[in-house]
Design a protein around this nucleic acid. Structure first.
Lengths: 216, 216
DNA sequence: CGTTGTGAAATGATTCACAGCT
DNA sequence: AGCTGTGAATCATTTCACAACG
């Protein structure tokens, strides 16, 4: 395959946003969109949109723009969500349960294959259409259902150990909700979501505006 | 105040990570830390750490490093979390409840002042030590308790309208969990957390490693 | 001596601006 | 005419490397 050039990291994040927006536009009946329109909807320049997409191929039609459905299909292919990904949730506390119950993942190419916890009090409880399973079952489920993604929703102090267990079980990447940096062998990507970090970003941004600065 | 120079956006995100790491180090008994150690813990260069901190002042001691407790205090001051921020949660679904029940916010300078929903079936239910309140109460609570932050956890289709209601009620910034881009008047910062976007980032990163590339 | 803070250099990302396609 | 794809130019961020300091 013609090896694609080097992709800026911010570009990948925007691909998800393009996809989300295009799915909305498609639902709204739009069949074609140009880089200006897509950029306006996401507060980006048209050049940014074109450049981002052009890293992956030539999807547009000069004089017309992009076919919404085609571009959705391309973006899914690029992101890898044109085929379903199986994921396990570890930690059946507030966040683990909320994520498991979040219904919209299936339509986005992600399937929850199981939810796990080490607390015997919790094991067996129902969460959505799953039952909380013991950690001992983890490797089996990951192996049998070709689970590639682990959603880590355990307390911070357990996060590192459980992350290692996930990798040992065969998971290929981790979405980490625990407020701890994980160190794993290279080649196992980690994406982190930390509520406190997000709130601190917001607090800082608000403080800036209160000192008279303007932020778009 | 001596106007600080222009702060790179990535720097602000790292400040939160520095703070988190320093709090861990402090708990572990560390009293002093240098830029190399802090960088290693977060997978950053020592120069990056020093430059980030130097945007805000001179906190280090040549030959020694940084006093952990002092630096924690400085970072809290910079981020604004040296005094508590009041926040409301709107939407008492899975995510809204999980966030409301997440106990660790108080210690980080954030207090949940109330949780709201428009569904009469849900109003009155207990979530943690709160009861779900009707949207009509929103402006009152925001005004009386000096609420600056709104956590938006409603379905995507309601997000824009509820965001506008939050701003009208007097909220100064929004943490948005809904998979929709919000458009609000300038000066109201928005930080977004989208589970699907995070999973897509992860899927893309995993796909890269499966094609032989190595990613640290 | 070890470590900070910081200009200067290098790298990375975005925007400009236009040739070329439909 | 309208819009894409893309080199070149600009702008932003990171890294280098070292003088200054305790």
């Amino acid at each position: 395959m013609a090896g694609r050039g080097k992709i800026p990291r911010p570009t990948v994040k925007r691909l998800s946003l393009y996809l989300r927006e295009l799915e909305n536009q498609s639902t709204a009946g739009q069949t074609t969109i140009n880089s200006r329109q897509l950029g306006d909807a996401l507060d980006l320049t048209d050049a940014q949109v074109r450049k981002d997409l052009a890293y992956f191929g030539q999807f547009g039609h000069p004089g017309i723009g992009y076919q919404v459905l085609d571009l959705i299909a391309e973006l899914r292919r690029i992101l890898g969500t044109d085929h379903p990904w199986h994921a396990v949730v570890v930690g059946a506390g507030n966040i683990g349960r909320a994520v498991t119950r979040y219904g919209r993942l299936g339509g986005k190419g992600f399937e929850i294959a199981g939810i796990f916890d080490s607390d015997p009090e919790i094991i067996g409880e129902a969460v959505d259409r799953h039952r909380v399973r013991p950690m001992e079952d983890l490797a089996g489920v990951v192996g049998e259902q070709d689970v590639k993604i682990g959603l880590l929703a355990v307390p911070a102090e357990d996060a590192q150990l459980v992350a290692e267990a996930l990798v040992a079980a065969g998971v290929r990447g981790i979405l980490n909700f625990a407020p701890r940096r994980l160190v794993l062998k290279p080649g196992v990507p980690i994406v982190s979501v930390d509520l406190t970090v997000s709130l601190e970003q917001l607090a800082f941004a608000i403080s800036l505006t209160e000192d008279g600065a303007i932020d778009g």
